[in-house]
Nucleic acid binder design. Structure first.
Length: 272
DNA sequence: AACCGGCTCAACCGCCGAAGC
DNA sequence: CGCTTCGGCGGTTGAGCCGGT
């Protein structure tokens, strides 16, 4: 289930399994600054990952409201029905299943549902063939009985403990945004009250310092000086190297606020 | 205990369309 | 127009788990 971490020597970018540390950095950055540019994001978030990898990790695993674990009968029926009409358009199917990602639905289809459908089809086909043979001279055949419905295999028949007791992503139920939240409300302090470890997170005091400090004139250049030192940004703990404050982003990228707000609201729509 | 093969699913890869220049 | 960049999508891979022998 876990891919061995490896190093892409061609560009120095890390590949493979995400570490909790990387997850923390990604969550910290996206929750505070939004996903304004996935390509640039890992640079500013202090991640040795490509943007695509960050986006995938966030979209498929870290973002809030993601439902993991066993599928309900209703969900499986929805997937099967939608697959009949939409085909392998997993993102379109996932749009009908709140909390389920296209990747997860795709995996579930290939590992469970497809086999079940194939089995049902083969049972139906075999039954039909037998029926046709046995009734080849019959002028008044019996109606075709419905194939025996398969028991729901998704409910705890999987021996994988991760599915029976799926691990909780860092932030799910206790996501620190309220219905009145705005981007500026997203403070690292919010995590203190969640079940997400506050170890190594910036404190309320440092976040206040951040807000105070960013009232100062901008001296850096967004595009040419992405990496500010921790001395310049004393509000940051060492493991979170998100270098730009919100109003700095707005200053250098005027559309940033709308972009990030839209992004956040899209991502957390189900929570508002 | 050791081996083997099937299964699961996180993550990667390559392609495509949209947008901007 | 073509070119580049980016986000998104679907197909595929492969490490680790697990049950059978």
């Amino acid at each position: 289930m876990v891919r061995t971490p490896c190093q892409d020597k061609s560009n120095g970018l890390k590949k493979g399994t995400w570490t909790p540390e990387e997850d923390r950095k990604l969550i910290a950055y996206v929750t505070r600054y939004g996903c304004w540019n996935w390509r640039q994001l890992p640079k500013f978030a202090g991640l040795q990952r490509c943007g695509k990898s960050c986006r995938l990790r966030w979209m498929n695993y870290l973002r809030p409201n993601i439902k993991r674990g066993n599928y309900t009968i209703e969900e499986e029926e929805t997937i099967i029905k939608l697959h009949q009409s939409l085909g392998n358009r997993w993102s379109a199917i996932s749009a009908h299943l709140p909390g389920r990602t296209d990747n997860e639905i795709k995996n579930h289809w290939h590992t469970n549902l497809k086999k079940r459908i194939d089995q049902q089809n083969s049972v139906t086909t075999t039954h039909n063939e037998k029926f046709l043979l046995s009734n080849s001279n019959d002028t008044d055949p019996e109606p075709e009985p419905e194939p025996e419905p398969e028991p729901n295999k998704n409910t705890n028949t999987n021996s994988n403990p991760l599915l029976i007791n799926p691990p909780s992503p860092p932030i799910l139920d206790t996501w620190p945004l309220s219905s009145n939240s705005s981007l500026s409300d997203i403070s690292p302090m919010s995590f203190e009250s969640s079940n997400f470890s506050s170890t190594n997170w910036v404190t309320d005091e440092t976040f206040t310092a951040l807000e105070a400090q960013t009232e100062q004139p901008i001296t850096g250049n967004f595009w040419t000086e992405p990496f500010m030192s921790d001395n310049y940004y004393p509000y940051l703990e060492s493991d979170i190297s998100a270098p730009l404050a919100i109003n700095e982003l707005e200053y250098f990228c005027p559309s940033y606020n709308d972009l990030s707000q839209n992004c956040l609201y899209n991502e957390y729509e189900g929570l508002f």
